[in-house]
Amino acid sequence: MGSVEKPWQFNFPPFFTIQPNIDTRKKQLEAWCEYVLEHQKNKNSHSLDINEAHSAIFTNKDINRKLPMDGVQMVLEELRKKGHLEWKDPKVQKECLIMWRTPEEWGKLIYKYISSKSMINTVCTLFELANGDDTEGEAFHGLEDWLLRRALQTLEKDGKAELMSFDGNEGVKFF
């Protein structure tokens, strides 16, 4: 894990003040969202504690700026609207799941891999998909269980896959 490449905005002080101008703010939030996702992707992490993130992601000690808490919430809300974020407990909003690829995007990636390997109409276990030797090197290799299942559920909705369980194992069949 190398350190994330900081966007240029990170050293631009106004980046850390929520802009009152709507157009400017929109651009600002977009940049923040991208940065947060990039950061998570780099850490290959899917969960985020809002207080930890505040000092880890939303602070630039070099120019002595910190995005205020309401700004952080605004960024996270923006992520949620785009489908990248889910609160573990929507009432508390302290911890959240960050999906730098949405389940749909993961589903498409997996389906593309399956069809390229002509594995349509075959059944494989979830363990095989995420941790099997065959998928090593694929983007979804090592994907957390919950997210993998969510991704497959989106495929199921489109009628491209069917989740099944047998012998205490979970498997999926692609169509």
Partner: peptide, 18 residues
Amino acid sequence: VCRDDSEEGLRFYPNLLL
């Protein structure tokens, strides 16, 4: 322009964000 509102006061910067 865009603003930078910190303890150091309110400063205005060219709107690079846009």
